[in-house]
Amino acid sequence: MGVADIRSLVLIATAIFLIAPVFLLAYVLFYNSRKKKHIEEKAQMKQAFETELIKAQAEVQEQTLQTIGADLHDNIGQLLSLISLNLNSIELTEDIAKAQKKIEASASLTLESIKELRLLGKLLHGDQLVINGLAASIEQLVLWISKADRFKVEYHVHGEAEEKNTAKDLIIFRIVQETVNNIVKHADASEIVIELTFLTDMVAVKISDNGVGFDVNSITANNKGMGLHNIYKRAMMAGGRAEIRSVPGSGSYVNIFVPYQ
C-alpha cells in the first residue's frame, strides 16, 4: 500500500467519522425544533380548548337565564297572580268556609311557587351544574324538560365515571343542552331518549328523537347549521368526535364520543 493510498484512506475514514456526528447533531436539532413546534401546537390547542370552555360556560349560563326568565314569566308569575287574585277575593264578611277554601288554595299555590323557585334556584347555579357530575347535570336538564309535559323523556345512565373531569363534563353537557334545545325548538318531537355510557376511558352520549328530522348534508353544506357545527367542533375540542344522523321524517340521532380520563 503506497503512502498516497494510506493518506487517502485515513482522510476518507476521518471525513466519514466526522460527517456521522454532524448528521447526528443535525438530526437532534431538527427533531428538537419539531418538538418545539409540537409543544406550541399543544399549547395552542389547550388555549383553544380553554376559550371554548369559557364560551360553553357562558352559553350554559345564558341558556339558564333564558329558561329562568321564561319560567318566571310563564309559571311563577302566573302562580303569584293567582295567589294575589285569590287573596284579594277573600272578603272578611263572607262565609268562613268559603274564605278557608280560598286560603287553602292560595297556600297550595304558594307551595307550588316555592317548589318552582327551588328548581329555579338549582338552575341558577348554571355554571356549577356540572360540579355534581355529568350524569346529575343531564338529569337536571331532563327534569326540566319533562316538567313541561310536552315530551316523553327517557334518560339512561350506564356505568359511572371513575374520576370527574369538570372541563370535559361542561363541554359534553353543553353539547347535550344544545342538542336538546334544537329538538325542543325545531324537531316537533314527542319523545326524546338520552343515553349516557361511561366506558373505561371514554364517555358516549346518544340523543335521539322521533321528530321531523332533517337533511344533515344539505344543512352542513349550506352552512346553515351553526348548532350542528358547534356540536362537531366541541366534540373535537374535547378530543372526541360527534356523529349526527337524520332522515327527514324519521327523527334524528346524535352520538358523541369523548375520551375521558
Binding site: 466519514i16 467519522f17 466526522l18
Partner: peptide, 13 residues
C-alpha cells in the same frame, strides 16, 4: 463527540 469519534479513524488506521 467530534473529537473522539473523529479521531477513531486516525487512532485505528
Amino acid at each position: 463527540l467530534f473529537f473522539y469519534f473523529g479521531s477513531t479513524a486516525t487512532n485505528v488506521f
